[in-house]
């Protein structure tokens, strides 16, 4: 019953962790807060789009 939701959660968790690591690397390399905020917003936007598209695809696949 929970397979699709578990897959989506685990994948989103991993993608978010990768996003944090990227922000962390940029923070340690440059240390500019505005660059960090810009990159952070881009990562959040990319994460949101990817997770939403995956969720939509999972729902479509389950309907078939």
């Amino acid at each position: 019953m929970v397979r699709t939701a578990l897959y989506l959660t685990a994948l989103s968790w991993v993608l978010l962790l990768i996003g944090f690591i990227v922000i962390g690397v940029i923070a340690h390399m440059f240390g500019n807060p505005w660059l960090l905020i810009t990159v952070g917003l881009m990562i959040v936007a990319a994460w949101s789009i990817v997770v939403y598209r995956i969720a939509e695809a999972l729902v479509r696949k389950s309907k078939v």
Binding site: M1, V2, R3, A5, A55, L58, V59, S62, K63
Partner: peptide, 14 residues
């Protein structure tokens, strides 16, 4: 609306 609950019951209603 797409929600986590919908994704949970889409595999198997319960």
């Amino acid at each position: 609306t797409l929600t986590l609950m919908k994704i949970i019951v889409i595999d198997e209603p319960g």
